[in-house]
């Protein structure tokens, strides 16, 4: 890994990652503050099973259900996923298309080392947002009156981070393989959105239930980290996928013609 490249990549994305983390903290504080007034009165929504599944059960009567639906199901993965995908695609294919890499890679630096440095920087960005999520969860739950174990809040944050590693690595592999930022962002985002829908609906349809195993959301939330804590096997799958995709990125960029 190229250390100067890693340091610079972290630096260039640091402010936006911290802002995303700060936004996450504010949103979670508001979500926590709203629970006493809103959560109890909504109760458990009577929705079709698949839709309820997409919304994290849509059980707003308990604090756990409230945070699971408000943050765990959609907002958290959305922010983490967007952070990871834009950073991965922007710092590789984006810089390539802008004509920056044509200069950087004329220096004595292996392309794979550059990609690994960018991958590590994406991971740092994801961890910053995940840390913000954790702080926000702890603070939001406290504002709501408490009642969710710290370990479970940590579990949700950790699962979110690993989800971010995985979709970020996918965007990295696409960006490194094609050199096209929009391809990387749109395909990785489409995969995440499709994965979100598949994870909600596939279990309802006989014969295609297995599709859920291809969704990152299955490993991120099917074992309900905010209620049941960390699931080591799920995290291992997400991490393994992230590592394999990062390795693929490092290999794909090696012999390809540089664009821009």
């Amino acid at each position: 890994m190229s250390v100067p490249t890693f340091v610079l990549a972290v630096r260039l994305r640091f402010v936006s990652a911290v802002l995303a983390a700060a936004g996450m903290i504010l949103v979670l504080l508001m979500v926590g503050a709203l629970f006493p007034a809103v959560g109890g009165s909504i109760g458990k929504l009577d929705l079709p099973k698949g839709v309820a599944e997409l919304l994290g059960g849509a059980d707003y009567s308990s604090l756990t259900g409230w945070f699971r639906s408000e943050i765990g199901a959609v907002y958290g993965p959305l922010v983490i996923g967007a952070t990871a995908i834009t950073a991965a695609a922007g710092s590789t294919a984006g810089e390539e298309e802008e004509g920056i890499l044509g200069l950087v890679l004329a220096h004595p630096l292996e392309r794979s080392q550059l990609v690994l440095a960018k991958a590590a920087a994406v991971a740092v960005g994801v961890l910053i947002v995940a840390a913000g999520t954790w702080i926000g969860l702890v603070a939001g739950v406290a504002v709501a009156g408490g009642g969710i174990a710290l370990a479970d809040l940590t579990a949700l944050s950790v699962h979110l981070a690993f989800f971010g590693f995985m979709v970020g690595a996918l965007a990295l592999a696409l960006a490194a393989g094609t050199g096209r930022k929009t391809v990387a962002i749109s395909v990785a985002s489409a995969y995440a959105i499709l994965g979100f829908l598949v994870n909600g609906f596939a279990p309802l349809v006989g014969g295609i239930e297995w599709l859920k195993y291809l969704s990152p959301f299955y490993y991120y939330e099917s074992n309900d980290p905010i209620a049941n804590g960390i699931d080591g096997a799920d995290l291992a799958v997400l991490l393994a996928a992230a590592l394999v995709l990062t390795a693929v990125a490092a290999i794909l960029i090696r012999r390809r013609d540089l664009r821009g």
Binding site: E98, G99, I100, G102, L103, A106, H107, P108, L109
Partner: peptide, 12 residues
């Protein structure tokens, strides 16, 4: 690349 200096034509 260690021993060469390069100025690309249209660089950023």
């Amino acid at each position: 690349r260690r021993r060469v200096g390069f100025l690309p034509g249209d660089f950023q």
